[in-house]
Write a protein that binds this DNA or RNA. Sequence first.
RNA 1: GCCUCUGUGGCGGAACUGGUAGACGCGACAGACUCAAAAUCUGUUGUUCGUAAGAACGUGCUGGUUCGAUUCCGGCCAGGGGCACCA
Length: 861
Amino acid sequence: MSLDISEIVPYNFSVVEPRWQEFWEKNQSFRSIFDSSRPKCYVLEMFMYPSGKVHIGHVRNYTIGDIIARFKRACGYAVLHPVGWDAFGLPAENAALKSKSHPKEWTYKNIEVMRKQIKSLGFSYDWTRDFATCDPKYYEFQQKLFLAMYQKGLIYRKNSEVNWDPIDNCVLANEQVVDGRGWRSGAIVERRMLSQWFIKITDYAEELLAELNNLDGWPEKVRTMQENWIGKSEGCSIKFRINDEAHITVFTTRPETIFGATFLAISPDHPLAQELASSDEKIKKFIDDHRKGSVSTEFMEKQEKFGLATGIFVHHPFLDKKLPVFIANFVLMDYGTGAIFATPAHDERDYEFAVKYNLPILDVIRPDEDASDKRLPYVGSGVVINSDFLNGLSISIARKVAIDKLCAIGVGERKKFYKLRDWGVSRQRYWGCPIPMIHCEKCGIVPLKNEDLPVLLPDDVTFDRPGNPLEHHASWKRVKCPCCGGSATRETDTLDTFVDSSWYFLRFCVNDPKNSDLLSFDDIQQWMPVDQYIGGVEHAILHLLYARFFTKALADCGFIKIREPFKNLFTQGMVCSVTYQKKNGEWLSPSEVVRNQGGIWEVAATGERVLVGRVEKMSKSKKNVVDPDTIIKDYGTDALRLFVVSDTPAEKDFPWSYEGLEGCWRFNNRLWRLFVFAQSRGVCAAECAREINLESLKSNVRDVYKAFHLTIKNVTYSLDERGMNRAVAYVRDCVNSLYSCLDDIEKNKPVFSVIIRDLIKLLSPMVPHICEEVWNRLGFENLVSDHPWPSYDEKFLQKSSITLPVQVNGKLRGIVEVSIDDPDNVVFQKALMVDNVKNVIGSAKIKKQIFVKGKIINFVV
RNA sequence: GCCUCUGUGGCGGAACUGGUAGACGCGACAGACUCAAAAUCUGUUGUUCGUAAGAACGUGCUGGUUCGAUUCCGGCCAGGGGCACCA
């Protein structure tokens, strides 16, 4: 019976982990059930693209989410924690081309593989809600939402310029153009005018911007990025008269500098420039050169300014003076009005242009006295000068006065502009959600009726020639017009996959989303918003902005009430790892290198010296990736889960190391030995029922018991703040202290039974398998996953005597034991008795003595 | 260039609203166990001086506020991220 702790059989994770995974699955232990008597908590990790393999970044992301879900569940919340697949997209088609498989087959096969991998990580998902965006039911609803938004006037079709890959015959997203070439074909990308579907996200620019202020559960960084992306600027438009019939409208945020205007500049894409080009060869050439040049990268980097005088002049609104109009390459057509008035003295671009083309520069702002650099172009604060009725006014007042006056004389208008553009959602691709629209020669564009949905993707497509297979399909696109009954064709473009991910979190709220015929927005109302959303910061703008927009648009279409989808957002960092390189630059995997006795890294096979690179993002090409499957096989899921959340705060980049992983594996074994040992000394569920008489305990045991209450507090507090790394540190510390009193367990079974019961509970979000196993072995009922979170008693956190630091002149000179109810003068007396304090003070006179209760004593001499 | 975040041991990182800087982990060193090794358990580990008690220095640099600053304020330096002709 006297089992020594070193004799305990090691923890066999390879048996224990699958056992509990099967148990949870069979019993649907994590089924989400809404319960109005409890607070709800919707925990969601950004769903996965089924690329074929789970990588370590996924593991970190989903472990963070799982810890939060398990913690919230234990704290009494009704938790929704679903999982799904962002399954449409380009890679499936590329794989189809390469391996002659079908995108559908490729995708579902990958999902199956990855689902198995995810299940081996023991996440507490409600698997009954699992679906993929390529499931017909899902995209059927997406088509319905699309039509509803169309009816609401939020979707339109327009000609626009796109990145066109001439080899693949398809549109590329901006991110898919690398150095002016298609990322796959390598062909130089062309700009092409194409008729595309757009969603009016710009209608929501103001709300998307304004509500950022209320998203206090979001990282400041993400909010700022969205704010910059939306890019609001307020100012006014001004009409500059050419003659009685014609004028040019410019946009400015600095109308107070109007008296400093010396010329106008319009974009090469401005309608007036286009018009002039038809009758002027020089202008035509300038515009053509600009078109060609603007795609080349060296041009983008240099950003050299070019311009051409048009020969046109406009009237200054306040002065009897004419300003020349230039066509200038630095003026963008898709911002503002595509035309500006230039004030070279107070704008860097205008200044550069004026200097190059020898145009006048009129100074109209006198810099503040304390301005660090008063040279032109001056863009700082100051007082307006040389400006008639604006003279002597500060910039902000002059701005108001100038706008008022411009409005009063009928040439100005207050305006807001945004950088945000409407969202082009057409993709010339097969593997995406079909757009439910018909092109009819007679009736034009006709939306399908809801009862004609879904528009299913045909399975019988071929990828033997470039372009969109839907376009080449023999029969799919031929339909009867829902309007006139005549022959018509379907829209063959499919939707951008960002549309799929803009509302999937709503679909999870419905029971059995894979098959459900219900949109069931009551369910959505119950669960939404997502209380904790977790994902990589790389989605800070696109996905998170689109999802916010979709939520607002669907609210306006009457589907839902909430207007913001994600209450709290957590952005985790990347998983990084060291890199190894041979002298010739060839990358090496960790298994190919070895550390010799001198501590120098060399190639295991040859002994050649290895360069150890910096810790950077895991990538296949640098051979510094680690495969979760292998880790799970060698160390167990719990070790991996524990490791990815320990040591480094979850929002920061995580430096992978096998030493650290082994430390977690050792910890799990240490836990196991502790629990098995405790059990052998009589710790069990039944002992928890016995009363504990604190006073009768040995002082070290009493201290451990009290300290454990602090552990509960610290772990709870840390998990609330999403400080997983701190929670892990506190439980490790607690385990260490339990190891220091192993000999006391047998005589204090009730105390240690309670501590161990609650310790298992504290550990269970991080390492659920080992906890479930021990819970069961110690005779506790049900699952540890179903057991409520332990509470702590404040009264145990207070100590009757405290150790206080004693400072002299702010320097630590000693520590003193005082009683909690010692009066101040007694505390000072005791502090002055400390040898070292006595020595340092010597005969000096104490000028001041400070005592902050429970914190510190300080003597000033 | 503009916006933004971050600077703490050999490394990852702790430190509640200003109050014992370095919790916890990794690495390193030592002891116990062992014929030995591994594993395990127990220690030590910011730097310098000192046999020790202890002292001096120490949270990127530099000023300030304070009895007391990693924490608050000013100036600078370095690194990461985002945006980039947005009028």
